[in-house]
Design a protein around this nucleic acid. Sequence first.
DNA 1: TGTCGGTTTTACCAATTGGTCAGAAACACG
DNA 2: CGTGTTTCTGACCAATTGGTAAAACCGACA
Lengths: 236, 236
Amino acid sequence: MHFVSFLGSPRNQAFRQSELDRMGVVHLNTDAMNELKPRTRIQQKNINAILEAALDVFSQYGFRGSTLDQIAQAAGLSKPNLLYYFPSKEAIHTTVLSGLLDNWLDPLREMDEAGEPIAEIMAYVRRKLEMSRDFPRESRLFANEILQGAPRMMEALEGELKELVDEKAEVIRHWVADGRVAPVDPYHLIFSIWALTQHYADFDVQVHAVLGKTDDSHFADAEVYLETLFTKLLTP
Amino acid sequence: MHFVSFLGSPRNQAFRQSELDRMGVVHLNTDAMNELKPRTRIQQKNINAILEAALDVFSQYGFRGSTLDQIAQAAGLSKPNLLYYFPSKEAIHTTVLSGLLDNWLDPLREMDEAGEPIAEIMAYVRRKLEMSRDFPRESRLFANEILQGAPRMMEALEGELKELVDEKAEVIRHWVADGRVAPVDPYHLIFSIWALTQHYADFDVQVHAVLGKTDDSHFADAEVYLETLFTKLLTP
DNA sequence: TGTCGGTTTTACCAATTGGTCAGAAACACG
DNA sequence: CGTGTTTCTGACCAATTGGTAAAACCGACA
C-alpha cells in the first residue's frame, strides 16, 4: 500500500480500517515515511505545509490541546482539505512524531567507540545543543509527548531508545573501566546531556525572560559553559 | 472581598466582572490564596479535592488539553459543582499555578550569601532534586506552562523570577570573584541546576523506560551523580 | 417543626471539536 | 477542445466543550 491509496474520500476507508491501529504507535522504521512519498508537486507542497503547521501547533499545545482548525489555518488550508491528505488528527500527529524520532537519536548514534572518549562525548553534547538551537519545535514536541506520559511513544522508548542507550552506556562503561574517562554513571551522564541541552529549547521562554534577551546569543555562552562542565566532569 | 463572596450562583456575578481580568495572570503574592480561605469544613475538603485533581490533570495535559469533566471526575464532583467553587476553568488553573510558584522558588531563596559557597549550591541542588522526587506533578505543570509559551506566567517570569535569579547570580559572581568558586557563568549554572533536577520529574517516564525500572530508586544515583558533577565544576 | 444558609443536581445552552460527503473546481493529457 | 483524475469547498453531523439557571437537597438552629 502506498501513499495515494489513502488519498481521497472513498479510497481512504480501507486505510482507516486496516492501518489506523498500527498508526496508533510510532514506529522507528520508515514505513510511514515510505507511504507518504508524494506523487505530485501539489501533494509534496501541501503535505509539507501540513506537517510543518502540525509541528508548530502540536509542539506548543500537545496532542489534546491542539485542534485541526489551528493546524489547517497555520497550513493555509481548509480543515476538510487537511483530512484529504491525512485520515485523522491522530495520523498527522503520528506522522510528525515518527519523522522526528530517527533524527532525534542520530547524534547519539554517531558517538563512536573507536574515537577519543572525551572528544566523542563533547561532540555529542555540541550536536545536541545545536539541535536545540536549530530545531526547538521538535524538542518541544518530544517534551510534550513525554510530559503527557508518552502514550504514543512508549513502545519506541522501551524499544529502540532503550537499546541505543544501553549500547552507548556500555561503551562509556568501557571507557571508564579503561581509565580514559573519570568514573561516572553512564546512564545519568546521558540523562544530564539530554537535560542540559534540551532545556534551552524546551524552556526557551524562561531562559529569555530571565536573561532579558530577545535573541539566541546565549547559545554561545551555553556552549562554553557545557564544555567546561563536561570537561571537568569527565577528565580522569 | 473574601472567599464566600464568590460562592454560589447569583453572588459570583460580581466576582466574574471585577476579578477575572486580574485572575488572568498569576500573582506571586498571596492575594488569591487569602480569598480562598475556606469557611466551612465542606469547602475546605472540596476545594482541596478540586485543586488536587486539577494539578493531576493540568500537569499532564496542559491547560488547553484538560477538560472540566476530567477534573470533576478526578475530584469526585459534578462539573456544575466545580463551577460552584470556581468561576471558570481559567480560575482553577490560575489558582493552582499561583499556589505553586512561591514554593517553587523557595529553594533558591534559601541559598545564603553568608554560607560556604559550594555547600550552599550543593544544598540547593539537593533541595531541587528532592522537589522533583516529591512533587513531580508540580514540576510538570510548570514545564507545561513554559512549553506553551507561559501565557499565564510571563509576568511572573519577567518579574519575581528574574529578580530573584539576578540577585542570586550576583551572589555567585561574588563567590567567583573571591576565588571561593571556580569561574562559571552564574546564569547558566542556575539553568543547569534547573535542567538537571527537573529532568527527573518532567521526563520521568523516559527515565523509567530507559532504566527499565518501576520504582524511584534512581533518585539516589542521581544525587550521587549530581554531587560529583557540581563538586568538580565548582571546586576552584 | 419550619426555615434559612450553604451545597448539589438536573436540565439545558451555544460554541467548538473531529470528521463526513457530495459535488464543484482545477488540472493533466490525448 | 474534451474527459478523466486530482484537489478542494461548503454544508453538514454527532459528540464534546465551558458554562448557566433553577430547582432540589441538606444540616443547623430557632
